Simulated scan of single mutants.
Amino acid sequence: MRDSLRAKAIAVCDAKIAAKGEGVGLSFYAFFANRNDDPERLMEAADWWIRRHRLDHFEKAVKIREMMKEGL
């Protein structure tokens, strides 16, 4: 996953956790605007989330943030 997408994902997780607490869940769609304005990055995130890690549709933001920080 490219560094810019990883940094954006970590920032989104941080914001969600700050706003709603450590129990908040999210999907990879949280990393994008409501419209599909960057299909390449969307598919990159989907591939990381679904194919590579076989994550559920919603996961805890703290889990995703740690995975991103660890470079998984």
Rank of each mutant, 00 (worst) to 15 (best):
L72D: 05
V24H: 13
M67D: 04
M67N: 02
R6N: 04
N36I: 10
M1R: 10
L42Q: 01
W49V: 07
E22K: 10
F58P: 03
M68Y: 04
N34D: 14
K63M: 13
A7D: 15
R2E: 08
A15Q: 07
F28V: 15
W49A: 11
D3Q: 13
S27Q: 12
A45Q: 00
M67Q: 07
D47N: 15
E40V: 09
A61F: 07
I64W: 02
L72C: 06
M67F: 01
M1A: 12
P39M: 06
L55R: 14
N34G: 11
K8S: 09
V12T: 10
L5K: 06
C13Y: 07
A9R: 04
D38Y: 00
P39T: 00
P39H: 07
G21T: 09
L26Y: 11
L55H: 14
V62S: 13
R51W: 12
E22N: 15
A61T: 04
N36R: 05
R41C: 03
M1K: 15
R2F: 07
R65V: 06
H57D: 09
D37F: 00
A11V: 00
V12S: 00
S4G: 09
R35S: 14
R52W: 08
S27K: 02
K69H: 02
K69Q: 14
D47G: 13
V62I: 15
R2C: 08
A11Q: 02
A15S: 10
A33F: 05
N34Y: 01
R35I: 06
W49G: 08
L26C: 12
R2L: 02
R65D: 04
A61E: 05
D3T: 07
I10E: 08
R35L: 00
F58S: 05
D47Y: 09
A61R: 05
A9N: 06
A18R: 14
L5C: 08
E70D: 12
A11G: 03
E40Y: 09
F58C: 06
H53Y: 15
K8N: 10
A7L: 14
D56H: 14
G25F: 06
A18L: 04
R2T: 13
L55T: 03
R6A: 13
A61I: 14
V12Q: 02
N36S: 07
A18I: 01
